[in-house]
Nucleic acid binder design. Structure first.
Lengths: 148, 148
DNA sequence: CCATTATAGTTGTCACTAACAACATACTTA
DNA sequence: TAAGTATGTTGTTAGTGACAACTATAATGG
């Protein structure tokens, strides 16, 4: 039991460090592209999860709908996102990327992936594969825990 | 080469998800304790890296010194941090925790560790140990990359 | 079928986050 | 000692994030 707490502590530290470094990198690599980190994450989510309603987007991003509404606003102003009415529900909106939104996302995504590739270029492939599995497992565990 | 890019892409996704979930959890578990996430991170850094100058603290946190100065201000107002002059340099300050800062940090830290323990209670110990090594390796790789 | 209740988004407000620039002060070195 | 450099603080601006109050639309139930 005390062993499992030690493990928890070490994992907490390690994940924290990883998060800091990634956040810092994101600030560097995203913000020079006309969008902020949060805006970029919204773009990413819309790319991955297809057209979404506002509340659904907020859920995916773990944010309040009001916060999300404002992030989307900024993307609308910059013409990276399109807001269409849902024909089946006059209250709801369908959010999707414009072509220039797609293009921007593509560009940023590619930059970030290249950077990630450089970061792991000296790490053995098996090591990366292992980390992948485990990080996903941890994410699932955390998500389950929060959902409860 | 294309393989390594795929790996980079998957890793990027996986880490991103992990970051979201952890951020969400932090908002929940830290902010009910009289400090924000950033303030808590400053406390943690001061605990781990001992008394620090402002610029050193900013470096550890990957933040600008002005941002850090304000985070520290809020902690000074709440009496969780102590600011002492550096005798060897009248410009510099030595930042450290007050007893109540120590106590608060201890409490939050324990909460977070317990939560982390619950998250991994269904993950095999070897798996956690593996993740730990790999996450650290990735952090180091990322840090080296940014430092350059 | 209308009144109640619930849901989708928006807006007001407040505190915090974060950077950049300009500044005062103190150290350093040429 | 003058010029340059480093340490922190403050002004400013934009963005983040939550909560509550609000409008408008849908769904339900009596």
């Amino acid at each position: 039991m005390s062993h499992s707490l030690e493990r928890a502590e070490e994992l907490y530290e390690a994940v924290n460090q990883l998060i800091r470094v990634h956040q810092f990198r994101d600030r560097d690599y995203i913000c020079c592209h006309d969008v902020t980190v949060a805006q970029c994450y919204a773009l990413e989510t819309l790319v991955k999860r297809g057209p979404l309603r506002l509340q659904a987007l907020a859920d995916e991003m773990y944010l309040d709908k009001s916060t999300t509404s404002r992030v989307v606003d900024s993307l609308l102003r910059k013409k990276y996102v399109l807001k269409a009415l849902d024909p089946s529900d006059q209250r709801a909106v369908q959010l999707s990327l414009t072509p220039s939104g797609e293009a921007l996302h593509q560009k940023i995504h590619q930059d970030l992936i290249s950077e990630e590739a450089l970061m792991i270029k000296n790490v053995a492939p098996e090591v990366v594969d292992g980390a992948l599995t485990l990080i996903r497992q941890l994410t699932t565990a955390a998500r389950d825990r929060l959902g409860s």
